[in-house]
């Protein structure tokens, strides 16, 4: 073998290894992004599955979670764990209040799906403008080094502490939600209401309370996604909920409306397609590529990955 060809063969090998490493690195980044999308979308799909409404206030709840976490850190000097709990509590309470003042009165009278949806748009606009009034339009940041910029090397892949935390917390919450839904009476009540509200009521399940619990839980999950996103990108502003809401809707439709596994998988798929399109195509086309992909999947499976027409599952 000529020395020159041997050299270029090694070079190609190196390039190849480099490509694999880049891919694995992007894989880790995508996992961190996608798990937050999944966390956000699970709350969204839970509301749809149980209350049968599309809540367009979920993005706002997400934003409130991020701000609550930020204030907990900057004003109360709380650590990461308590800050996340604060964000969840604030966002969960907001979800509960929105159900109480905007959705419930409409539900009491008639169950026209559009009216509650429009009411949630109203809530979203209202709360967003309050946030804008309080915080202005500029972006806020968590204190420098709030999460230490440590990184860990896993084979060829570098994971930051922040990414590890985000992935761990997101998956932990998803597991907790699934366990609660299957192993507790309230979880079973939620699933029963999602399958058949009238029958559940006849069995003595207080359907209204189930709606409230669901609204709180979904809000809390949205709030957790909010603070994690806030830390991850380190920009928090009053309008951060909008783009997230669009992604949430896309993820939920992709996974199959009302299906938790679908929201999980859909969130990861969106995270992956966004990261990969930035890495391999161009960041300019990120949304075009990822939403184009969603569209393609929907052409193949119109009811979403886990969706079956006329049947819902939580």
């Amino acid at each position: 073998m000529e020395p020159e060809t041997a050299f270029s063969a090694i070079g190609e090998d190196l390039i190849c290894i480099g490509r694999v490493t880049v891919f694995l690195q992007q894989f880790a980044n995508a996992l961190a992004l996608g798990s937050v999308y999944a966390l956000f979308a699970i709350g969204f799909t839970l509301i749809f599955g149980v209350l049968e409404i599309i809540t367009l206030a979920h993005g706002t709840i997400f934003m409130v979670g991020a701000f609550a976490g930020l204030l907990a850190v900057t004003k109360l000097h709380l650590g990461l764990g308590p800050a996340i709990l604060t964000a969840m509590l604030a966002a969960g309470t907001l979800g509960w209040v929105i159900d109480l003042v905007a959705v419930r009165p409409l539900r009491k009278r008639s169950f026209h799906h559009l009216a509650p949806m429009i009411a949630t748009i109203g809530c979203a606009t209202f709360i967003t403008s309050i946030a804008q009034g309080l915080f202005g339009a500029e972006a806020y940041r968590f204190p420098f080094d709030f999460v230490p910029a440590t990184s860990y090397t896993l084979g060829p892949v570098q994971l930051t502490l922040l990414q590890l935390i985000i992935i761990a917390i997101s998956f932990a919450f998803m597991v907790i939600i699934i366990v609660l839904l299957h192993k507790t009476k309230w979880g079973k009540a939620v699933r029963a209401v999602a399958e058949n509200r009238r029958t559940a009521a006849l069995l003595g399940i207080p359907v209204d309370r189930v709606y409230q619990i669901t609204s709180f839980t979904a809000g809390a999950l949205g709030g957790a996604a909010g603070i994690l996103t806030g830390i991850n990108f380190n920009t928090i502003h009053a309008f951060m909920g909008g783009p997230m809401l669009h992604r949430g809707i896309a993820v939920v439709i992709l996974g199959g409306m009302g299906d938790i596994r679908g929201a999980l998988l859909g969130g990861l798929i969106l995270g992956f397609s966004e990261i990969m399109s930035v890495a391999y195509i161009s960041s300019d086309f990120r949304d075009a590529v990822s939403f184009g992909l969603l569209f393609l999947i929907l052409l193949l499976k119109p009811a979403g990955i886990f969706g079956r027409t006329g049947e819902r599952k939580v």
């Binding site: 079973k188 009540a189 699933r191 029963a192 399958e195 058949n196 029958t199 559940a200």
Partner: peptide, 12 residues
């Protein structure tokens, strides 16, 4: 509740 187990139906 078709998607739930028999035991879960009773538990509901």
């Amino acid at each position: 509740f078709g998607e739930m187990s028999l035991l879960e139906n009773v538990l509901v």
